[in-house]
Design a protein around this nucleic acid. Structure first.
Length: 577
DNA sequence: GCCGTTTTCGGCCCGACTGTTTTCAGTCG
C-alpha cells in the first residue's frame, strides 16, 4: 500500500485530535497539526523523501516524528499512535473530515452514540439530535458540511487550478470596487497540486467587494462572510477563499497569505527579534503605530531583507538567504529559447503514443512561440516490432525527412532530430548505437518496470546514461501526480554521475509529471547538474505549457545558467555534444 | 513535539468568523 501525503497528514491530524481530547499540551497538538499541514502541501511524496533519507528536511518534522514516520513506512503502523487512538471509534475520525467539525464537536457526536456518518446525517435530519442538545444552527452547518465532505478528493493539478483561478480573477476584476486581484497560497507559490483556491482583492470598499464576490456564478453556498473575508463552496465542492484589504496595505495582505505556514511562522519570529509584529494589516513596531505597506517589498525591506519570490516561500532557507541579500536570480518565466521533447505524428511503429500534429505544424508553433530552436523526440521504434536493420532504416528515413524541414526553415529556426528511447530493465537502450549515431541527440526514459529495488534502478539508469550517444534523462523519477509515486533510485548518486559526465536531467512540464521534482531540482543544481525544461507535448496546444516547468525550476532555486534551453543555439549544441 | 548567531531548556505567529457561553471557545487559514 502506498501512503499518500494526504493519508499521512490525516493520520497526524487524527493523533492531534486524540491528543486534544486527552488535554495534551497545546504546543504538542500544534506540532502535529503543523507537521500534517506541511506534509499535505509538499510537492514531493513524503514517502519518497523517507526512502531518500530526507524526512528531516520537512519543516515541522523532528526527531520524534521522523521515528514515528519511519515506523509507519516500514511496518504500516505506529504503535504510539495506535495506543493514543485505540479508545476512539472510527466515527470520531470520520467526523473530523466534515468542514467546521473539530475534536470537540466530534467528541459531542461520539457522546450521542452515533455509529457512523450515515446515522449522523439521519439523526440530524429527523431532529433527534437537536432534542439531545445540538443547536439548530450547528445541525444545519454539519449537514451542509457533510455534503462537501469527500476525503478521497485528489488535489487539483496546477494547470487546472490556474485555469479556474483565471476565470475567478476575471470575474473579480470586473467589479468597480476591485482595484487589484491576485492569487494567494499554494497557487501563487506554484505548487504542483492545489487544494483550495485563495484570492486577494484590494478595494476601498471591502464590504461591496465581498458582496460582489459571493454572487459569483457557480457558488453552492457561502460558508463564511465577514467584513474582510469570505469563504464559499462551489457546486463542484471546491472551496474558494477571498481576502479583502485596502490598497494602502495590500502588500501586507499578499505577504501574509502567500508563504507556506512555516515561512510565515519563521518570518514572524524573525520580526519579533527585530522589534516588529507582522500581520495582514501591517507591520507594527512594538507599542507604536502600524506601518501599512502597499507592496510586499516594503514588508520585507522593513526586516532588512530581500523579497523572496513567491515560489520559494517555503521556509527552506529563503529567509536566511534573503537576510544576507544572497537570493538567487531565479530563471524568469518565458525565457526558454526552445523545446527538445516533442512528439510529432511522424509514423513510427508501434503508433500508440504518437503525437497528434505534424512536424511542420509544430515548427510553425515553435516559431509563433518565439523559439530559436526545437527538437523532435518521437518514441523509438520498438525492438519487439522491428529487426535491428529495420530500426536503422526507419531512423535514416526520418532523419532525411527532418533534414528537408531544416533546409526549409533555415535562418528562421534551428531544428534537431532527436529521439526518446526506452531504458530497458537491464539498462540497455531500445535503439542500437548505429541508430543513435544518426541523431542530433537522444533522450532516454524509464517507461516500463517502474517497481524495482533501489540499487537495481540506480544501476539501470546509470548504465543507460553511460551510453556516449545519450544526453538527456527524461522525467527522471517517473512519478505521475495523484497516480504513481516516484520510483526508487539513489538520486544523489545519479546527480553526481550527471555532474561528472555532463548528462542533462529533464524537468518535464507535463502537468501530471512536473518531474524532476522541485526538491530534487534544488539538490541537483547544488551538485552542478544542468537541466533542460521540456514540454513532452503530444499536440500543438501542449507546447504552451513550458512555464509550468519553469515554475518547478524556480521552486528548486534554479537560475538561467542551470537550464540549458535558456542558452543560445551554439551554446546548447556545445552542451549536447 | 519542534527548534536554536545570546538558548539543548523554555519558549512556541496572528487573526477572522461563528455561535451564543455577554467575555469566550471552537474552528479555520
Amino acid at each position: 500500500m502506498d501512503l499518500t501525503n494526504r493519508d499521512v497528514a490525516k493520520l497526524l491530524r487524527n493523533v492531534a485530535a486524540a491528543l486534544t481530547l486527552k488535554k495534551a499540551s497545546i504546543f504538542q497538538i500544534r506540532a502535529y497539526e503543523t507537521a500534517a499541514d506541511a506534509i499535505e502541501h509538499l510537492t514531493s511524496e513524503v514517502k519518497d523523501l523517507w526512502e531518500e533519507g530526507k524526512l528531516a528536511e520537512v519543516p515541522g518534522v523532528g526527531k520524534n516524528l521522523s521515528e514515528h514516520l519511519n515506523e509507519l513506512f516500514s511496518t504500516g503502523k505506529v504503535a504510539h499512535f495506535e495506543s493514543l487512538t485505540k479508545d476512539l471509534p472510527p466515527v470520531f475520525f470520520e467526523a473530523l473530515d466534515i468542514p467546521g467539525v473539530g475534536p470537540k464537536t466530534a467528541q459531542r457526536i461520539l457522546s450521542l452514540k452515533v455509529q457512523n456518518l450515515e446515522e449522523l446525517k439521519q439523526r440530524l435530519e429527523d431532529g433527534s439530535l437537536i432534542k439531545e442538545g445540538f443547536s439548530e444552527k450547528l445541525a444545519e452547518n454539519i449537514l451542509l458540511g457533510l455534503k462537501d465532505t469527500n476525503s478521497e478528493k485528489d488535489r487539483m493539478l496546477l494547470p487546472f487550478a490556474e485555469e479556474l483561478a483565471a476565470k475567478i480573477l476575471d470575474y473579480l476584476r470586473k467589479s468597480p470596487d476591485v482595484k487589484q486581484a491576485d492569487c494567494l497560497g499554494s497557487l501563487r507559490r506554484k505548487v504542483a497540486t492545489i487544494g483550495d483556491l485563495d484570492f486577494a482583492v484590494a478595494s476601498d470598499n471591502p464590504e461591496k467587494a465581498i458582496k460582489y464576490f459571493v454572487k459569483m456564478p457557480g457558488i453552492s453556498r457561502i460558508v463564511d462572510q465577514g467584513e474582510n473575508k469570505a469563504m464559499v463552496m462551489l457546486t463542484s465542492h471546491l472551496q474558494i477563499d477571498l481576502l479583502v484589504g485596502k490598497p494602502k496595505n495590500y502588500g501586507n495582505l499578499l505577504q501574509h497569505f502567500t508563504g507556506s505556514k512555516h515561512h510565515n511562522i519563521s518570518l514572524r519570529k524573525l520580526a519579533e527579534d527585530k522589534g516588529y509584529s507582522i500581520s495582514e494589516y501591517g507591520v507594527k513596531k512594538l507599542k507604536t503605530a502600524v506601518i501599512e505597506c502597499k507592496t510586499e517589498e516594503e514588508v520585507y525591506s522593513l526586516l532588512d531583507m530581500q523579497t523572496p519570490p513567491s515560489e520559494i516561500r517555503e521556509d527552506a532557507g529563503e529567509i536566511e538567504a534573503a537576510l544576507k541579500h544572497q537570493l538567487p536570480q531565479l530563471i524568469p518565466y518565458g525565457s526558454l529559447k526552445g523545446d527538445l521533447h516533442l512528439h510529432s505524428s511522424y509514423p513510427i511503429e508501434p503508433s500508440h503514443d504518437l503525437g497528434r500534429d505534424s512536424m511542420e505544424d509544430m515548427v510553425k508553433r515553435a516559431l509563433a512561440l518565439g523559439y530559436k530552436y526545437l527538437g523532435f523526440s518521437d518514441h523509438s521504434p520498438a525492438t519487439s516490432n522491428h529487426s535491428k536493420p529495420k530500426i536503422i532504416d526507419i531512423l535514416k528515413k526520418r532523419s532525411a525527412f527532418i533534414d528537408k524541414l531544416k533546409l526549409k526553415y533555415a535562418g528562421k529556426i534551428e531544428i534537431l532530430a532527436g529521439l526518446e528511447a526506452d531504458i530497458q530493465p537491464d539498462g540497455s537502450i531500445s535503439v542500437p548505437d548505429e541508430g543513435l549515431k544518426l541523431l542530433d541527440y537522444c533522450i532516454v526514459g524509464v517507461h516500463s518496470a517502474h517497481r524495482m529495488e533501489q540499487s537495481k534502478m540506480t544501476a539501470r539508469i546509470l548504465k543507460a546514461l553511460s551510453n556516449p550517444y545519450v544526453q538527456i534523462l527524461a522525467h527522471p523519477t517517473g512519478r505521475l501526480l495523484n497516480q504513481r509515486p516516484s520510483f526508487e533510485a539513489d538520486w544523489a548518486k545519479v546527480f553526481e554521475f550527471c555532474a561528472k559526465k555532463g548528462k542533462i536531467l529533464e524537468i518535464n512540464s507535463f502537468p501530471d509529471r512536473l518531474d524532476l521534482r522541485d526538491d530534487l531540482v534544488r539538490q541537483a543544481i547544488s551538485k552542478g547538474v544542468k537541466l533542460v525544461i521540456d514540454s513532452d507535448a503530444h499536440g500543438l496546444e501542449q507546447m504552451d505549457q513550458l512555464d509550468y516547468g519553469v515554475a518547478v525550476a524556480r521552486r528548486g532555486w534554479a537560475t538561467s545558467a542551470d537550464i540549458i534551453n535558456t542558452y543560445g543555439f551554439k551554446d546548447l549544441l556545445d552542451v549536447l555534444k
